[in-house]
Design a protein around this nucleic acid. Structure first.
Lengths: 104, 104
DNA sequence: TTGCAATACATAGGCTTTCGATGTATTCTA
DNA sequence: TAGAATACATCGAAAGCCTATGTATTGCAA
């Protein structure tokens, strides 16, 4: 299955912890969700670019162990957006739960 | 926002209660979710056709108050699929919750 | 009595999100 | 020394949903 629209929320949440680079963000999402949420590179990198273009993230590159990493961090706007998306997520889950008959 | 991929689950769940027609299914989803989940006709009807083609629903028409209504009902396969999609939904919600830090 | 909202279905075109495939390049490990 | 892991990127396609539009009937209010 896979319910679409959660990736930006997840990225913002991960980066609320600390700045991180693409590959590591993907790993954190996978690990913290016990392997349930696994986004592909073809999804992740374009989404990061999009979030940066929207002003929700800023980025800088760093050379580490011979590898170039692009680190992303939340902006003020990104923090606001995270709060908003978390609320929308809760609203959505509650709404589906009610239809499914899992009264809250 | 709107997290995509829930409509088939919602339709199957509504029809698990009793057979219903498209317009009424949409109303039930809207009412039971307190107005949060509002799917448009351009989404609903093609999805119903698709679910029927997959063998998850069967349909028949009825004339009522001068209006032609197409009623849909769950098949055995549809019941199975509902059970499966409910489980997938729970798995997905738990996974996102863990990333969001709402330990279960 | 006429026009608009609600009911009831349908389809075409477009947008967003995601995936699959592919490409490049380096480091680590068996 | 080959393959897995790390690290980024882009292109084309599929999936899910929306907007707009079309047809037609019923019910209600101006």
């Amino acid at each position: 299955m896979n319910f679409k629209g959660s990736l930006s929320l997840l990225i913002l949440q991960i980066l609320a912890g600390s700045a991180s680079h693409g590959y590591n963000i993907a790993q954190q999402i996978k690990q913290q969700s016990q392997g349930v949420l696994t986004f592909k590179e073809g999804t992740l990198y374009p989404t990061l670019h999009s979030l940066e273009q929207q002003g929700l993230l800023t980025s800088y590159t760093e050379e580490e162990q011979g590898r170039t990493r692009r680190y992303y961090q939340l902006t003020k706007q990104g923090q606001k957006r995270l709060k908003k998306e978390r609320q929308e997520w809760e609203t959505f889950v509650d709404a589906v739960s009610q239809v499914l008959g899992e009264k809250i």
